[in-house]
C-alpha cells in the first residue's frame, strides 16, 4: 500500500487502493461477501484490486475461477439467490459479453420473474474505458447496454473516496449492480478516503464543481477531463458546473435538471460511442424536463461510432479541447 495517513480516520489513496479497502472492509463486516473471478485469488487480480484478500480470508471467501465469464456471473447468480453476497470480477469490460445473457436475462430478472421470491444481490466489478493504450479489447465503455436493462443498477465512481463508498453501498444493495471502474484513473490522482465504514448512497449525483453558465454532465474518467475543461473555461470568463453522475441507474435526475435549469446550457461528456450512448438518454431527459430553460442545444461530446482504436486512441477519447469546443457550441446560440 502506498496510501499515507494524513489525519485520523482518513488515508490518501489511489482509486484501486480504495476499491481494495472497500472489499476488505465488507469482507470483514459480512461473512456472506465472497470475491471471485479470474486471477483474483493469490495473484490479487490483474490490477491488484483483490491483493491480499485470499491470504487474509482464505479460499472459500476469495477464489479463482476458470476463464469463463458466463460461468463466473452464472455462479454469482447462484450464490446470490442462495443468500450470499457475491462480488465477481470480470478482468476487462470488453470480455464481459459471454456473460451478457447471465447478466441481462438471469441476474437482472430474478427478482421480477420470481415475484420477489428470489433476489440477486450481486456486484459485478469490471474495469472499463480507454486511456491506457489497451486497444479494442481493453478499452471499451459499454455501460449503455446495461443501463438499457431493467433490473440492473449501474455505478461508476470518479474519485477514490466515491469508489470505496459506492462499492460498499453496491455490495449492501439488494439488487444486482454493475460496478464499472474507470481504469484510466485507477492510479492517477490520489484522494482522501475515510477508513472503515464509508458509504455513498446509490442514486445521488455529486456536484464536482459549482458554476453558473454551463453544466457538464460526466461520469468516471470523463469527470477529471471536465474539471480541467472547467478550469480552462474559467480563464475565458465562463463559470462551469461539473456534475458527476456517480450512478447511471438509478439516475439522480433532480440534481441534473436543477443544474441545467440554473445554467441554461449543457454538455454531456462520455467516452462510449456517441450514438445511443448514455448521453442520448440525458439529452432526452433534459428535453422532456427543462427545455424551456435551455439557451442552446444540449451538446454531446463522446467517443466516435468506431471500434476503439489503438494508435489513434488520443483522437478517440474526449479531451479538454473537445469539451471546450462543446461548451462553445452551447454559447453559439
Amino acid at each position: 500500500m502506498t496510501a499515507t495517513e494524513t489525519r485520523p480516520g482518513v488515508k490518501v489513496m489511489t482509486m484501486i487502493e480504495a476499491i481494495s479497502d472497500a472489499l476488505r472492509t465488507e469482507m470483514k463486516n459480512d461473512d456472506r461477501v465472497v470475491v471471485f473471478g479470474e486471477d483474483v485469488g493469490p495473484k490479487g487480480g490483474v490490477f491488484g484490486a483483490t491483493a491480499g484478500l485470499h491470504e487474509e480470508f482464505g479460499e472459500t471467501r476469495c477464489f479463482d475461477t476458470p476463464l469463463s465469464e458466463c460461468g463466473i456471473v452464472g455462479a454469482g447468480v447462484g450464490m446470490a439467490v442462495y443468500g450470499m453476497r457475491p462480488v465477481a470480477e470480470i478482468q476487462f469490460l470488453d470480455f464481459i459479453y459471454p456473460a451478457f445473457d447471465q447478466i441481462v436475462s438471469e441476474a437482472a430478472k430474478m427478482r421480477y420473474r420470481s415475484g420477489g421470491e428470489y433476489t440477486c444481490p450481486m456486484v459485478i466489478r469490471s474495469p472499463y474505458g480507454g486511456g491506457i493504450r489497451g486497444g479494442h479489447y481493453h478499452s471499451q465503455s459499454s455501460e449503455a447496454y446495461f443501463c438499457h436493462t431493467p433490473g440492473l443498477k449501474v455505478v461508476i465512481p470518479s474519485t477514490p473516496a466515491d469508489a470505496k463508498g459506492l462499492l460498499i453501498s453496491s455490495i449492501r444493495d439488494e439488487d444486482p449492480v454493475m460496478f464499472l471502474e474507470p481504469k484510466k484513473i485507477y492510479r492517477h490522482g490520489k484522494g482522501e478516503v475515510p477508513l472503515g465504514e464509508h458509504t455513498v448512497p446509490l442514486g445521488r449525483a455529486r456536484i464536482a464543481r459549482a458554476g453558473t453558465d454551463v453544466t457538464l454532465l460526466a461520469y468516471g474518467a470523463m469527470v477529471p477531463v471536465c474539471e480541467a475543461a472547467a478550469d480552462a473555461a474559467a480563464e475565458q470568463g465562463r463559470s462551469v458546473e461539473v456534475v458527476d453522475l456517480r450512478t447511471l441507474v438509478p439516475l439522480d435526475e433532480q440534481t441534473i435538471v436543477e443544474s441545467v435549469k440554473k445554467t441554461g446550457r449543457c454538455v454531456v461528456v462520455y467516452e462510449a460511442p456517441k450514438t445511443c450512448g448514455y448521453g442520448a438518454e440525458l439529452a432526452a431527459i433534459l428535453a422532456e424536463k427543462c427545455i424551456e430553460y435551455l439557451e442552446g442545444p444540449v451538446v454531446r461530446v463522446a467517443g466516435f461510432d468506431t471500434p476503439f482504436p489503438y494508435t489513434l486512441e488520443h483522437l478517440y477519447m474526449p479531451d479538454e479541447k473537445r469539451v471546450l469546443a462543446g461548451i462553445d457550441k452551447t454559447f453559439a446560440w
Binding site: A80, P86, S105
Partner: peptide, 15 residues
C-alpha cells in the same frame, strides 16, 4: 443458463 446457478449456489452453501 441455470446450470451454473446450481454450481454457484453449491459453492455458496459450502462457504
Amino acid at each position: 443458463s441455470h446450470l451454473s446457478h446450481a454450481v454457484g449456489a453449491g459453492i455458496g452453501a459450502r462457504a
